[in-house]
């Protein structure tokens, strides 16, 4: 976790305190993307210095202000995808910064195989996210898990793409 992201997350958490939102996704904060976009470079600020950092491109992502709350998983896997670890970390920061926040982690599986075993697979995915939240500062009392297995598919088709959309964990803020 970079220093910048910690600051962003703390800011975000601070802003969220006192916000009595009943929505499942916390309010996006414009400060987020602003701070984020200044974080890419590594140049020193010594005028005339002969070395410049290589720098790195900044992708424009119009949704960067909103914290994604659905994480997808590979077939037969409960491993969080690398691109999702930072987002889960930011949820953890929010929780750590506001002990009044509560989340429910809803785990899901695709529809192949036995229903109760799929409940187990969905729970395994919820627990991956739960462990990450706990390691990064959320409290056990803030998190509950439920697994719907294959009972609440996001996509109703039976293609591989549909299955991929159904293997997921949704973070829902319950207060």
């Amino acid at each position: 976790m970079s220093q910048h992201k910690l600051i962003v997350a703390s800011l975000l958490a601070a802003l969220l305190i006192g916000c009595s939102s009943s929505r499942s996704i916390p309010d996006p904060e414009p400060t987020d993307s602003a701070v984020e976009s200044s974080g890419g470079g590594s140049a020193t600020d010594a005028y005339g210095s002969d070395t410049m950092g290589g720098g790195e491109p900044i992708d424009y992502d119009p949704t960067a202000g909103e914290l994604a709350n659905i994480f997808y998983f590979d077939f037969d896997s409960a491993e969080l995808r690398p691109e999702d670890t930072d987002i889960v970390a930011r949820h953890a920061m929010q929780l750590a910064g506001n002990s009044n926040l509560r989340v429910r982690l809803e785990g899901h599986a695709d529809e192949r195989g036995s229903r109760e075993y799929n409940i187990g697979l969905g729970e395994r995915r919820s627990q991956t996210v739960r462990r990450m939240l706990l390691i990064q500062g959320a409290a056990t009392s803030q998190i509950s898990t439920v697994s719907f297995g294959e009972e609440r598919p996001a996509a109703m088709g039976d293609s591989e793409d549909d299955y991929a959309q159904n293997r997921r964990v949704e973070i829902k803020y319950t207060n």
Partner: peptide, 9 residues
């Protein structure tokens, strides 16, 4: 089947 808070079924 019980999973408990740690989700160990």
């Amino acid at each position: 089947t019980l999973g408990g808070v740690d989700g160990n079924l």
